[in-house]
Design a binder for these strands. Structure first.
Length: 504
RNA sequence: GUCGGCGUAGCUCAGACGGUUAGAGCACUCGGCUCAUAAUCGAGUGGUCGUCGGUUCGAGUCCGACCGCCGACACCA
């Protein structure tokens, strides 16, 4: 049976509407999922929305809705955006679904049964929008340091997860799994948090009702984080379908932003250990997309929404940019200008124009019928390198490097045309070989780039006269040199990526 | 304050384990080509790798100090 490959995004909190930060994570996960489908893996790709918690409860009240109505509306917006961006998730989980509520209760009950949950009292200065308690010295003139508004004194009986008992087990787990957190810098950050010492954390609330009830204590609901994290287990049948669960767990690849590193790289593995599960195999932590060097935020009014960019660059232009222009890990600065530059150079000039010039010459010199490539083409080796480098890069969670490797093949094909000047040649075997080579490169590029640009690659595939779609192909065989059979009608068509003029 | 990260060509960034003339893309300059979306190909200009000191036969690459920027610091999606 094929290899299981389970990849997740965080579930997005329905307090915020989808912006390019959410899209960045989701597109990356999608490309990874698509790459692994090319490899023939048994892929399961999960995203979803996080819908409990006080913020949702309050915001629903303010809007005169029930919390669920509020969640329904925003969750739908996420699904719409993912559909627009051609996201191929196999499931979309909502934390308000019965399957998840049951799963959370089972998961937490098992931590309880294993003796890692105790009763305690929590009290402190509480900020409602933050859903968080603050120490006195964190407050700014008695107000919440984030929102600058008054905090409330709250005291409640809570259930506590004995995180402190997992300090050493976590250190052991990190030591035994050197690759569990990517990139290395983020792994060190997580280790730093653990080494600074872990205290027990409160996992339940009595002050709110919008949450998953604590099964052993009616009147408590789980604090939103301890509900949310468990979604990754829910979706593959935790507690209900053991066979399926065991197939995909713990071989899960979880992508997340650095803001939630603590929860995913410390609390979540500890919860897994407490529940008797192996922690996730790999946590891929990325940085933020900055705008003008600043973090995107609602209050700064500098959020950028996917639809606005898709209108200008198209879905694949959007996807390509976010996969190619930022390496996965460090923060990256988003700018419209650099997006235009990248679009023009990589997509219009290199890729789109290659198809254009090839199709024209085939039309003029080969009667529009694409010839087969030469078996001994110098491009064969370049193609093999591209495949090898791209494979390694995807494996290392480096989409940018994978696309870079793919585009080196495009560059080599453009140079090959330049060197042979087929437009000067008379029809015949020599001309056929040059054009066949170029068509073969386009065919291979379609396969290698389809995780990033599925729609465009399928278009090009069809224009080359090939049957089916690139994402039905299987690596590595499909990328072996010589796959373009020749004798197929090649269609020029409109430019794939019309050049954009640089912004003023 | 404590902990962590970053500072490499005009711009965006790559550069395990220290090792011949420090790389890529974009921008720029020159040349070629004209099949192509004024696209493409080739060559080139451009960096005392934040500063100072140390270890070493040899250091962006290790150690120390300093300067600058950023993040985390316990429940801030």
């Amino acid at each position: 049976m094929s290899n299981p490959f389970y990849v997740t995004t965080p579930i997005y909190y329905v307090n915020d509407v989808p912006h390019i930060g959410h899209a960045y994570t989701t597109v990356t996960a999608d490309a990874l999922a698509r790459w692994h489908r090319l490899l023939g893996d048994d892929v399961f790709f999960l995203t979803g929305t996080d819908e409990h918690g006080l913020k949702i409860q309050r915001s629903a009240e303010a809007n005169g809705m029930t919390p669920l109505e509020q969640a329904d509306a925003t969750s739908a917006r996420f699904r719409e955006v993912w559909q627009m961006l051609n996201i191929s998730n196999d499931d979309f989980i909502r934390t308000t679904e019965p399957r998840h509520i049951a799963s959370v209760q089972t998961f937490m009950q098992s931590i309880f049964d294993n003796g890692f949950i105790r009763k305690g009292t929590y009290s402190g200065q509480y900020c409602v929008p933050c859903e968080a308690y603050y120490n006195d010295d964190d407050l700014v003139e008695g107000n919440c340091p984030i929102h600058g508004r008054p905090v409330e004194w709250l005291e409640e009986d809570n259930w506590f997860f004995e995180l402190s008992k997992f300090e050493q087990p976590l250190l052991d787990w990190y030591a035994a799994n050197p690759d569990c957190v990517h990139p290395l810098g983020k792994r060190n950050e997580a280790l730093g948090i653990i080494k600074q010492g872990l205290e027990d954390v409160s996992v339940s609330r009595t002050s709110i009702s919008w949450g998953v009830p604590v099964p052993w204590d009616e009147g408590h609901v789980f604090y939103v984080w301890y509900d949310a994290l468990i979604n990754y287990a829910t979706a593959i049948g935790y507690g209900t379908d053991t066979e399926r669960f065991n197939r995909f767990w713990p071989a899960v690849h979880q992508l997340l932003g650095k803001d939630i590193l603590r929860f995913h790289c410390v609390y979540w593995p500890a919860m897994c250990l407490a529940a008797g599960l192996e922690p996730p195999a790999r946590l891929g932590v990325h940085g933020f997309l900055l705008v003008g060097g600043e973090k995107m935020s609602k209050t700064r009014l500098n959020q950028i929404f996917p639809a606005d960019l898709v209108a200008d660059f198209g879905v694949d232009g959007f996807r390509y940019h976010f996969l190619r222009d930022n390496s996965f890990g460090p923060d990256g600065d988003f700018s419209y200008e650099s997006m235009v530059t990248r679009y023009n150079t990589d997509l219009a000039n290199n890729f789109g124009n290659l198809l254009s010039r090839v199709a024209t010459v085939v039309g003029k010199k080969c009667d529009g019928i694409g010839p087969a490539p030469a078996a001994d083409s110098p491009l064969a080796e370049v193609a093999a390198e591209s495949l090898r480098d791209a494979s390694a890069a995807w494996e290392a969670l480096a989409p940018s490097a994978a696309l870079d490797a793919t585009w080196r093949l495009i560059g080599a094909a453009n140079a090959h045309l330049e060197n042979n000047e087929p437009w000067k040649m008379e029809p015949g075997p020599a001309l056929d070989a040059v054009m066949g080579d170029a068509l073969e490169v386009l065919r291979i590029v379609c396969i290698l780039a389809t995780p990033a640009m599925p729609e465009t690659c399928a278009h090009v595939w069809a224009r080359l006269g090939l049957a089916g779609t690139p994402d039905e192909q299987r690596l590595p065989e499909a990328a072996a040199w010589g796959g373009y059979p020749g004798g197929l009608p090649v269609i020029k068509g409109d430019p794939l990526f019309p050049r954009m003029s640089p912004p003023k």
